[in-house]
Write a protein that binds this DNA or RNA. Structure first.
Lengths: 232, 232
DNA sequence: ATGATTGGATAGTGTCACTCTCCAAGGAAT
DNA sequence: ATTCCTTGGAGAGTGACACTATCCAATCAT
């Protein structure tokens, strides 16, 4: 297919596809003549993955290129490729070095991963981007005066470990090879908004259960149309 | 204190503080003379919250203003204020209407919240920003060919519900009033990167447990310094 | 008195994800 | 064969965003 059809079938504007080609997020099509190129189903698939990463996952274009390069890297096994892909994901600001709060956050993160080590957490990942992400988030909480006690963090770690087992079970259902690494990246990135959205929905619901005045809640039975106002 | 001291104590440049004042993220200081203003401890605290939301939470400045306005809104109870604050959080692109995939995603989201309703999920939140965030993420997964079966989604929903209970328990430890609503916002937003970081760490660890060649793993005992390379 | 500091206003910077405009080569229709 | 349209590549331009730099007059410290 030509670029215009790729655009029609994906819903992405031709100009944007050209931009992705230029940025190396999409491999070039097969050159038919000096001025025309042919694109296949794999281009369509890749384009949809790029869109999902960039728009839904919020991955910057430059990072997405690194992630996809890792996915395509035939020189590594799936563990290595997945690791490299996750390694390239965005992870917020670098924690400020030479800051006592950062040092405390680092210590908390180390305690947490140590305590979770037995149940499958990455003690070997200290200093990878996810670890730095954890440290800078904990440092921000500490700076705001929240103690970030281990006892409060542990449930998060345990649930994350359980999610990881579940996710890899799901990934194993796809045929090994590129499809599996691609699935791993897609599920890692795209389930992040799913998880955050579900947590926010659950917060609202739990807050409503605990604090909303009873007369505001609809009586038992089908949800009333007015119930949507309760969370505002 | 003067603006310069506020800057020194928070680590935020004076120019940036002026920008936040202009944008209404920080209330103006108490005017001492025609050209000078005095700032208090509450300004410092608010400034740190703004920094955490913007830098760590990735909340755009314009959204942060809405979130903080909701936190300060004395006309509502804590449930209402928390709801309004979460309502104003960023939630990705709007799901494309008039799209069959979006329709299917909407249906899946409805099934999921219905199934979780009894255990504390927000059936009354249908059409709030978190719901839209869920729908557009599911739509992206469906477009990529991942079926998003209920069976795969349910564990996420159940864990999210458990996190919500845990989070509100933590929040209840703070004294009721502004501090509690502020804690709710801070914990909602700043635990998001914590959760994502822990999930990514757990993915890496679980992938290593399952797929890494045994000779790559350090033998039982203290973690070897080279173990940090394993995720690449 | 005088030099530094303060806070407000305005304009500028760098980044990012596109998006527009131009162009020559190629194909389709008559 | 000539005309017209489409194609894909390249470079510049756009708008949003989060600052950041420069001015300036009023005011404070010495």
């Amino acid at each position: 297919m030509r670029l215009a059809e790729l655009s029609r079938r994906s819903g992405v504007s031709a100009a944007t596809i050209k931009y992705y080609l230029r940025e190396g997020l999409l491999p070039p099509g097969e050159r038919v003549t000096a001025t025309q190129a042919e694109y296949g189903a794999e281009h369509l698939r890749r384009l949809r993955l790029v869109r999902a990463l960039v728009q839904v996952g919020g991955v910057p274009v430059a990072r997405a290129r690194e992630v996809l390069r890792a996915v395509d890297d035939a020189g590594q096994d799936r563990h290595g490729r997945l690791g490299a892909a996750v390694w390239a994901l965005p992870h917020g600001p670098e924690p400020e070095e030479d800051d006592p709060v950062t040092a405390l956050a680092r210590e908390r993160a180390a305690e947490l991963t140590a305590r979770l080590g037995g149940s499958g957490h990455g003690e070997g990942q200290a200093e990878g981007p996810p670890h730095r992400m954890l440290v800078s988030a904990l440092a921000a909480l500490l700076r705001l005066g929240y103690p970030c006690e281990l006892e409060q963090l542990l449930p998060y770690g345990e649930l994350a470990a359980r999610l990881a087992v579940h996710d890899l079970d799901v990934i194993e259902r796809y045929e090994p090879g590129n499809a599996q690494v691609e699935a791993a990246v897609a599920l890692t990135v795209l389930y992040e908004p799913v998880l955050l959205a579900l947590r926010r929905l659950a917060h609202a619901a739990e807050s409503e259960r605990r604090y909303a005045a009873p007369e505001r809640r609809p009586p038992a039975g089908p949800v009333s149309p007015a119930a949507g106002e309760a969370g505002r």
